[in-house]
Design a protein around this nucleic acid. Structure first.
Length: 520
RNA sequence: GGCGCUUUCGUCUAGCGGCUAGGACACAUGCCUCUCACGCAUGGAACACGGGUUCGAUUCCCGUAGGCGCUACCA
């Protein structure tokens, strides 16, 4: 076999928003393609006409655009292996179904869903296979004339794959090694349904991968059990020599408890499971997205790449898309499912947020501020970000515990920066910080301090420091905490000189006066 | 139930027969300090269990237990 150009595909069903697990699968395909100078194909698997959801396809494309994952060909990307939407490939599938039928590797079955249900009810562990197919209504038990007649009168039918019993089928998986399954446990899978003239996933998948010259199938572990069936299909078509290599990725699991990560977990624990916000066209339900939540795409990509794969000691965990392409290795993927750790996801975002220049926060920060009815200039916001971006915010985790974490999103800034824009309206005398730092004679000290501040001509952080530091030392004063009470109203905030400079002389003195009047 | 995959700190993981079992997130403590932080330093924390193979098993093999997946005219 000659060396073929690497070609991989990501092939979602347009049944709703793209799940974060699907994003990771696509990311791994992307990394693998880039690394090998290959192509990444975007195919839409819409063979289940009943589950189609309008808008899903557009949503998926927009998600990848946001994440920076680029496709080389496929739906909306062009290419000469199209069409890339399976619903537009009916004729192709029909032709290949006929190939299997003619070769005696598949047969036509007329059993209705009701009849099958009845079988399942009477026979324990009923499976449509070599042991039972001769008791059913299909082209193996009916004469050619009867079959033709049934089709002619419009009876619905399906085409089933005729599995040869008693064979050990080996799937050579890039991540798991050789996986062997006996064909006895495989059933005669439905390959094609006459009702909508569409194939099922299995047939469409094999035909498309073959025709699109796919060399590697990188997909979730949920497909591992049907991989032997796919191997058998390649053999039946006599395409075994160009059969793609398989790699089945571990699944993404819930952060707490057991089971696969689901949409509900995200809503419950306060992290999104979709890249973009999704508005369900039927129920009107809104599911949160990483983009809207304030995540940077680089952070999402970095975090996701490390869920199930890791470069070992070759590199630290902060990696750009380019570095991921460089270091990614299918053979280094782990085999067991990874619990989704949203605390670490937030940490990644924090890191990328810090890497951004301060002025880059302005759009997101501005949005947060305007929601609070505050109008700030970009210069002001940039200055506030500079002072506050390394602070920590308290939040409540999924189990109701109070926790602290670094500022991870621009939206975290509001509770920590409110005082830059709004003067304290009242003081909580029971507050620990205020109690400790506002004693009986503090009001007098602050009055003196305000008088001294009023004389400062250069009311900048540097100017204040130059004048006030010596004065404080001379008079043996420690006015900062009480001053903080005046300007912030709590034990938080940046360096006091910087804060005062930001507020300006007038506002600073006003706030001090107000505090003196209130706290006495 | 059947079949398959899987099992290292709380979480993500490194390890590919001999290591004080390493890192990251999280957590705790100390230093720094005008508050809260950042930063820096330190610390606690893991090889599921039972048999083999071997001079020697976290590592290889077999069981058991747990976890996950599949078992549709869904993907």
């Amino acid at each position: 076999m000659t060396e073929r150009k690497v070609r991989v595909r990501f092939a979602p069903s347009p049944t709703g928003p793209l799940h974060i697990g699907g994003v990771r699968t696509a990311l791994y395909n992307y990394l693998f393609a880039r690394q090998h100078g290959g192509d990444l194909i975007f195919r839409i698997e819409d063979t289940d006409s009943t589950r189609f959801v309008p808008g899903a396809e557009e949503y998926i494309i927009e998600s990848f655009k946001w994440l920076g994952i680029q496709f080389d060909e496929g739906v909306s990307f062009g290419g000469n292996h199209g069409p890339y939407r399976q619903s537009e490939r009916r004729d192709i599938y029909k032709k290949y179904v006929q190939v299997l039928l003619d070769a005696g590797r598949a047969y036509i079955a007329f059993d209705t869903p009701e009849e099958l249900d009845a079988k399942r009810a009477t026979i324990e562990n009923f499976q449509y296979d070599a042991s039972t197919r001769l008791q059913m209504r299909n082209s193996l038990t009916l004469s050619q004339e009867e079959v033709d007649a049934l089709i002619a009168e419009g009876q619905q039918y399906v085409v089933r794959f005729k599995i040869e019993p008693g064979r050990d089928v080996v799937v050579d998986d890039l991540i798991r090694g050789k996986v062997t399954i006996n064909s006895n446990v495989l059933d005669d899978k439905v390959l094609y349904k006459s009702a909508d003239e569409l194939p099922t996933y299995h047939l469409a998948n094999i035909v498309d991968d073959h025709l699109m010259e796919v060399t590697h199938v990188i997909r979730g572990e949920e497909w591992l059990p049907s991989a032997p069936l796919h191997v058998l299909l390649y053999e039946a078509f006599e395409w075994a020599d160009t059969m793609p290599r398989f790699a089945h990725l571990p699944l993404l699991l819930k952060p707490i408890g057991n089971g696969k990560l689901s949409k509900r977990d995200g809503d419950k624990l306060g992290f999104p499971v979709f890249p973009l916000e999704w508005h369900d066209p039927k129920s009107g339900e809104i599911s949160s997205g990483y983009r809207e939540k304030g995540y940077l795409p680089q952070a999402v990509v970095n975090f996701l790449a490390l869920l199930g794969w890791n470069p070992g000691e070759a590199h630290d965990e902060m990696m750009s898309l380019e570095e991921l392409v460089q270091y990614f290795d299918l053979g280094k993927c782990s085999k067991n499912g990874a619990k989704f750790d949203y605390v670490k996801a937030a940490w990644f975002n924090h890191q990328y947020l810090l890497q951004q220049p301060d002025e880059a926060w302005a759009p997101a920060f501005g949005k947060v501020l305007s929601e609070q009815g505050i109008d700030a200039t970009t210069a002001q916001m940039t200055e506030v970000v500079r002072m506050m971006k390394t602070k920590v915010i308290e939040y409540v985790d999924g189990q109701g515990n109070k926790k602290k974490r670094n500022i991870s999103f621009a939206s975290d800034l509001w509770p920590l920066t409110k005082f830059f824009f709004v003067a304290p309206a009242e003081f909580d005398r029971e507050d620990k910080f205020i109690k400790k730092n506002w004693k009986e004679d503090t009001a007098n000290e602050m009055r003196n301090f305000a008088e001294r501040l009023a004389q400062v001509a250069d009311f900048t952080a540097e100017g204040l420091k130059a004048e006030i530091d010596p004065w404080v030392e001379q008079n043996e004063l420690r006015p900062w905490n009480a001053w903080r009470v005046c300007l912030v109203g709590a034990g938080q905030g940046p360096d006091m000189y910087e804060l005062a400079a930001f507020l300006g002389k007038e506002e600073t003195l006003n706030r001090m006066q107000f505090a003196i009047a209130n706290l006495g």
